[in-house]
Amino acid sequence: MKKTTKLLTGALALLLVSAIFVAADHIDAPSSTATTSDIADFFAFEPSEGSDNTVFAVDLQSDVLPELPFGSFDEDVLTEINIDLDGDLIEDRVIQAIARDGRMYFFGPASPAQTGLSSQVLTDSPLGDVEISDATPVVETTASGVSLFAGPRQDPFFFDFFQFNAVISPELDSAVGGFLPSDEATDTFDGANTLSIIIEIPNSLLGSPTATNPLGLTVYKTWVTTNRKQ
């Protein structure tokens, strides 16, 4: 299956079979149906200017309307943050996250067992784990200074979904005048949740960044994939 990708310029008691995971397709067309492996958003940033840490935040698609439950992490889906350190757009380090019995387990950063469309859980490189949050956020910080979170977070984008559909549907008269000004528009997804996996990690564990963004800042080349157990 096609790889689902978003781009941006102590021992554990957990026992995991070293299963092969094959990447799943992303909801990238109106006819696609959202799945538990759908990547909604991916963010990578410094938590503050000049910080020696990097934050990675992955939002997985869930029920998009506020009145619907936010669902749960799929235990057959491996989420993988990929980091390219030499500019060849092939992952040199990966951070993995997978849910088991109400907790999210993290592995890496480490060299992947294989690159490309398939992945294996790096059970020999445990990073830490955290209880999957519900109403109360839970953050776990490891001895190596890595902070971990997994659970529902409010959708980060303001989007007037119904007015957007009206604008792109010329047969509807409701779109006269185009998009509404911000004080009249409705945030359709206000109160809706995504399922988020967030990790703040010292750069010293990742390796040295080699890319430069349009602002002239040195950054990591990084992207995220989801992989479904086969």
Rank of each mutant, 00 (worst) to 15 (best):
T186G: 00
P152H: 03
T54N: 05
P181G: 10
P202M: 11
M1Y: 10
S72K: 14
L16Y: 05
K221A: 04
R103S: 12
R100D: 13
A97T: 05
I27P: 05
A40K: 09
V94P: 01
T35W: 00
D187S: 10
G178L: 08
S196N: 13
A13C: 00
I199T: 15
S125P: 00
D101L: 04
Q96C: 13
G191A: 04
T9R: 13
P30W: 04
V224E: 07
N53K: 15
V139I: 15
S72M: 06
K2W: 08
D129W: 03
F179V: 11
S31L: 09
A34V: 06
R228G: 01
R93C: 03
T115C: 07
G10C: 00
D160H: 04
P30D: 06
P137W: 01
T226Y: 02
T222P: 05
D101F: 10
A57L: 13
D84I: 07
I199D: 02
A97C: 15
N193D: 12
V121R: 12
F45R: 14
V94F: 02
T210F: 08
I81Q: 05
F157N: 14
F179Q: 07
D160G: 05
G145T: 10
P109R: 01
L16C: 08
T54K: 13
T218I: 09
S169K: 06
A57I: 09
T123Q: 10
I198C: 06
G151T: 08
A19G: 11
P156K: 08
P214E: 15
V139Y: 10
G87S: 09
Q61T: 14
L217Q: 15
V138E: 08
P156E: 02
N203W: 00
G207M: 11
F149G: 02
S62G: 15
T115H: 11
F73D: 03
L217A: 14
P112Y: 01
T9V: 08
F43G: 04
D134R: 15
P181D: 12
E80H: 05
F21A: 08
F43I: 03
Q154T: 13
T210C: 01
L195C: 04
L127A: 04
F43K: 12
A192L: 02
S37N: 07
L205A: 11
L12P: 04
V130M: 08
F45M: 09
S174E: 14
M104Q: 06
K2N: 12
G145R: 13
T188M: 03
D28K: 14
F162C: 00
G116A: 07
D38P: 04
G216C: 07
T186D: 08
L215K: 15
F149N: 01
T188S: 08
L127G: 02
R153I: 09
Q96W: 02
T226M: 09
D190C: 11
G102P: 06
I132K: 10
L122R: 03
H26C: 02
Q163S: 07
E46A: 14
